[in-house]
Design a protein around this nucleic acid. Structure first.
Lengths: 209, 209
DNA sequence: ATTTGCATGTCGACT
DNA sequence: AGTCGACGTGCAAAT
């Protein structure tokens, strides 16, 4: 009846039961059921971006009478189909990924290329991906007084956890016996994050694409 | 002509451009485009659960020649349709929500709400998601003797690794100089896990939905 | 209206 | 296979 090997979109009156990390029930109604080539399964209702129920890549689909069962690891979705309105198998469905531009790296490059505009002083080195025990910092500039200017860059809004992250980087650099001051750079910053910066003595660098 | 007021699913050869919190491009290919009654828009490819591009509820859709434009706040999606394979308008598409049951959180709440039934004693604080170096513990109650009652909750059966996890949490709390006793709570527990609990001096709390 | 924290988060990178 | 961090996170509840 349904080719569970092929990708398809199915519009049907159905009810859905999920068991796995939690349990859920979706009451009987008309839903859009999407089966992808990698086994992913979506049950979409008429509102919101996120599906009502879903199963990730690698799920296996089988049919028993008017019931579709998708299994993946410890998770199971059971779709009871009461009335099949339409089904259509998609051929040559693309799997391309989006390409994101305006990346963090782009901002990092802009700051380094125009370093003097953002951080005044005489600098000996400006280094990207400066290694610390907690992982690499985006940019660290060392001035003639050996003071480390630590810049953490985000491509969108800065929130409190990002400032906290900078705080830990600063600590890590001070732990190795270097003096350091902190900067956080992004197109925007949240109010709380800005206040947090003030308490920590960090400076916000507004940088746009 | 596409009825941009109605909910529909559209299979087409298209390319997609997004601008908003970031920028993205999706190369030309065959994609499934879903327009929901609340304005939400999804561009689905043949793999993965998450859509390649999307727009949340409240977005407005308009058509200009062979280009669909969805706008929402500061975000824009432009879909250039090269070849329309099929379009279907969904009638009586349900908006029902799922009902979630049997989550770990539900059990955690039940234990906290009825704390005295599960853990006897005089308590100063009862804290959820108690932070440790190994991550948060579900519940920690501190009694008048400063003894920490550490409760790890699972939504199904407890097996040996879960008890081992509790063991590590207890160690982490003792490492910060606090005295601690362990409890593990779930609807069921395996025989080996129960024996392991006995050796470690942990207590099993049976809790049901 | 804004902020906070959870999610069946998903997903990719790295160990 | 597990862990970690980012995400155009989305989403609902609390403030």
């Amino acid at each position: 009846m349904i080719d569970v090997k092929a990708p398809f979109i199915l519009y049907a009156q159905a009810e859905v039961f999920y068991d796995g990390r939690a349990c859920s029930t979706l009451e009987i109604g008309n839903y859009l059921i999407i089966h992808k080539t990698d086994g992913a399964l979506l049950i979409e209702a008429s509102t919101k971006t996120t599906p009502r129920n879903y199963q990730g890549p690698g799920a296996t689909l089988e049919q028993r009478a008017h019931i579709l069962i998708s299994r993946r690891k410890q998770e199971t979705i059971k779709i009871v189909i009461h009335k099949l309105h339409s089904i259509s198998y998609l051929s040559n469905w693309s799997a391309s990924n989006i390409i994101i531009t305006k990346t963090e790296k782009e901002l990092v490059n802009k700051i380094i290329d125009n370093w003097a505009d953002y951080v005044p002083g005489e600098f000996v080195t400006i280094q990207q991906e400066f290694p610390t025990l907690l992982g690499p910092v985006d940019i660290v500039g060392v001035d003639t007084n050996r003071l480390h200017h630590v810049v953490e860059v985000k491509r969108k809004n800065i929130s409190v956890p990002h400032v906290s992250q900078l705080d830990r980087y600063i600590s890590a650099i001070r732990d190795i016996g270097e003096d350091a001051v902190g900067y956080i750079a992004a197109p925007n910053i949240g109010k709380n994050a800005l206040a947090y910066c003030a308490t920590q003595g960090f400076q916000y660098i507004k940088v746009d694409f």
